[in-house]
Every structure is written in C-alpha cells, then in structure tokens.
Amino acid sequence: MANEKKKRWVMVIDPSRCIDCKACDVACKRENSLVLEGRDSYRNWISSKGIEGTYPRLKQKFEPSQCQHCSNTPCEHVCPTRATYKTRDGIVRVDYKRCILCKTCITACPYDARFEQHQFKAIDKCTFCEHRIYEGKLPACVDTCPTKVRVFGDLNDPQSEVSKLLAARHWRVLKPEVGTRPNLYYIA
C-alpha cells in the first residue's frame, strides 16, 4: 500500500434524498459494535429543524451528518497526546489507548461529531469505516441507506463517482467560515 497513490476519501451527501429513517445510525452502531451508553453515543445523525411553517403551509428538511474528516483538523491540533491523528489518506482517527479523555477535542469540533465512549475508555467518532473501505466495501452508513443519500469514494481518482458528482453538481460544506475544509460535501 505504501507505493500506492494517496487517496482522499470523501463523502458526498444529497440531503434531498434523505427520508430520516435512521438506518445509517443503526448500521453504524452495529458495524462498529458500539454499545448504546446513553443519549450521547452515536457517530452519525440526521439534523432537522422539525416541521417548519404554519399549517397547512409546511416543509421539513433532513441533513445527515457525521465527522467531517476535516483537512484542517481542529480536533487534531488540540489533542495533547496525538491520540487524534490523520491517516495518510486523510481519515481522522482516534487512537483509543493514547486518549486521556481531556475532551478538548469535543470543544474544538465545530460539528459536535465527538463524544466520550466508555466502551473504548476514550473519545469516539466516525472512522469512515476504515476497516471496510480497504477491503473494497463501503462504509456502513453508505451501503445501508435505502435512498442512497451518501456516496463515498476517492476524490483523487477523477473517475470516482464522488469526483464526477462534485464536478457536475453545485455543492456546499458545513460551516465553511470556521476554515476546517471538511471532506463531507453536500449537494446543494
């Protein structure tokens, strides 16, 4: 693998397809054997402002999200023991055994993507299912999705679906003003 070209794993999300069914969340928890420890243990989520407007003129939007695997990585910067690190392909990971649970990374993350997981005695977050993607499988949230809201792939490969999507469609990222350069893209 060392000689292979570097990947840039990204996820492209089309929120207009999302029906808020929570399959991504449960699939993530099972794939990663996450113990349900309370309201706070989850790696991905679906944001919604709920039903907006006044009856009968209503709308509701859903926006699935998770760790943005930022290129400019605030959680990595603040971690005193380098427990949070970036892999060569840009995945932001937590090395559980180095984590001292100071929780500075939680306060540093503009996306509320990190949480304390007692099961690992460490801070936890989305890993892009790193254990799957090098076996050619998709992250759990991607493959389980009924309406295929998420597309995952290598942005360094111009032939990948994500490259084509980002070239062809208008997109946005979350909180661009904080300068984190996320690797989660939203079809606008």
């Binding site: 971690c79 005193p80 023991t81 380098r82 180095r98 001292i100 100071c102 500075t104």
Partner: peptide, 22 residues
Amino acid sequence: IGHPLRMLVYNIISPNLHAAIW
C-alpha cells in the same frame, strides 16, 4: 480527565506541540 495516569505517560512519549493543553 478520564485517564490522568495515561496523560503522564503520553504527554512525554507522544507530545503534540500544537496543543495548548499539552
């Protein structure tokens, strides 16, 4: 802090000089 003892060890063997908390 969840792991004060771990902190003592990894502060030394795995310091992050970018981190104010270090």
